[in-house]
Nucleic acid binder design. Structure first.
Length: 461
DNA sequence: GCATGATCATGC
DNA sequence: GCATGATCATGC
């Protein structure tokens, strides 16, 4: 007789190992056979749930229609927790998937209910000793579903347009088509083009997974939402909705907006605060949608001449970390590959600053892999050689060897800290100064490049 | 008026 | 106490 396991039972079984390590659970000695991809899933399937390992288009637990996923959580330097990576789901069959609507898709059939088991990834520990943090039955929140459906449509529409080879994680918000294969040479045929496309799988982006971790594993309260009514997204995308809300205020002065929304602050991000109010939230950067989709807001001031007032800063890098990175797995490259920005332009005219434009932007791959890459390499090389300080100018400022905006087209390196005494340690001695620390620095997008982005956008429109 | 080092106000 | 987003200051 076959025993039918229900969702409720599965969650209880999963929760019974909270706080245990994989070696505690592994009674079939799978861990002793060495680490392989998916080993944690295999241990739990065999030793906790007692079923045979399979790879079928059906969910792992057929009767309950639940798919088991074991996924790592990491601890950040500031003590918070994030998902260590995206959650990869089933492979997309380009040849057939385009025939289905969302609820008939392979994505929905296999993943409509997920049993998520989170473990803590700890780099200093051996993998057998990783601990299960918690387990939950994940069924999509009603507010997330319209966005996930729109993401699905976006992926399908690219396949229908014969563009499966151009699919990119940047196309979508929560659900992405991520590369899945041993290399770029893992390609498959697509139905509406002769060009072979990289094999891809559905996946939840790491930003989406991080919010699940924070809410369901760490117990953090729900984020405020920009979309107050899920039906808004039945007729438009999230991006279009956000831009249409902002466009209602184009031409308004900062003074008028401060008055209208009763915002009074000397903070340098006052313009971002105003955009938050326009979208009906306290802090757009902390909104549910921006966090889950990894969208960041940047406000930009354009002078009457058209020049952009300031270059654009990003978080400071740590000298000791960046020298241990390769470009392929660098924080900088990862940031540009996984972040989308909402640029909001404020233009100065007639002595007043007005809201003038808003659009979403991602770093083009070809720029990332040329100009940005070479700047990163130049910077890392100089840190490795301890060749940072150049000379002190007549104002007592320390001029560096890092590439400035005068010698680059897209991005440059400049200080970014509280003051010049706000430093990070150096991996090697600074050759001229003899110190083991230097003022914090970060990568900046050149204001001239930002101007170019805005011009190109106007040309296209 | 630009380029670049230095710094500020805020929030967590 | 520090990260962050954004801006300030001034020699050239």
């Amino acid at each position: 007789m076959r025993i039918i396991i229900r969702k409720f039972d599965l969650v209880n079984i999963a929760k019974s190992v909270t706080g245990k390590s994989f070696s505690d659970i592994d009674n079939k000695n799978r861990l002793s056979k060495g680490k392989t991809k998916g080993i944690f899933g295999h241990v739990l399937e065999e030793s906790l749930f007692n079923y045979d390992i399979n790879s079928s288009s059906e969910p792992d637990f057929k009767d309950a229609q639940v798919e088991l996923k074991v996924t790592p959580v990491k601890r950040n330097k500031n003590g918070s927790y994030s998902s260590k990576e995206r959650l990869v789901l089933n492979i997309i069959n380009f040849m057939s998937e385009h025939q289905y609507s969302f609820y008939d898709s392979s994505f929905w059939k296999k993943n409509k209910s997920l049993l998520l088991m989170f473990y803590l990834f700890e780099p200093e520990k051996s993998y057998e000793d990783y601990i299960i943090l918690n387990s939950i039955l994940y069924e999509y929140p009603i507010d997330d579903l319209p966005i996930i459906k729109n993401d699905y449509e976006t992926i399908i529409n690219r396949i229908k347009a014969g563009e499966a080879h151009l699919l990119s994680g940047k196309d979508t918000m929560y659900l992405e088509a991520c590369p899945k294969g041993t290399s770029k040479t893992s390609v498959r045929e697509q139905p509406f083009s002769n060009i072979k496309a990289m094999q891809r799988a559905y996946a939840f982006k790491s930003g989406y997974m991080t919010q699940i971790v924070r809410k369901y594993v760490m117990g953090k309260e729900t984020n405020e939402k920009i979309i107050k009514d899920a039906s808004i997204l039945e007729s438009q995308t999230f991006d279009d909705y956000v831009l249409s809300r902002i466009k209602n205020y184009i031409g308004d002065s900062v003074e008028a907006l401060k008055e209208k929304f009763q915002v009074d602050s000397k903070a340098k991000n006052i313009n971002a605060q105003l955009v938050s109010r326009i979208l009906g939230v306290n802090n757009i950067a902390k909104s549910d949608e921006f966090l889950k989709a990894n969208i960041k807001i940047k406000t930009i001031q354009q002078k009457e001449s058209g020049t952009i007032k300031e270059s654009m800063s990003f978080p400071a890098f740590e000298y000791t970390s960046i020298v241990n990175e390769t470009w392929e797995e660098s924080d900088l490259r990862d940031m540009f590959l996984t972040t989308k920005w909402l640029f909001v332009i404020f233009e100065k005219s007639h002595e007043k600053v007005h809201l003038s434009d808003a659009f979403f932007w991602t770093m083009p791959d070809e720029i990332l892999e040329s100009e940005v890459k070479s700047l990163w390499q130049d910077t890392v090389e100089k840190i490795k050689q301890g060749k940072i300080y150049h000379h002190t100018n007549s104002r007592g400022q320390r001029i560096t060897h890092f590439l400035g905006s005068a010698s680059t087209k897209v991005a440059h390196v400049r200080p970014h800290g509280l003051n010049k005494n706000d430093t990070y340690p150096l991996p090697v001695k600074e050759q001229t100064l003899g110190t083991y620390e230097y003022t914090k620095s970060c990568f900046w997008l050149n204001n001239s490049y930002i101007k170019e982005i805005i011009l190109n956008r106007k040309k296209r429109a």
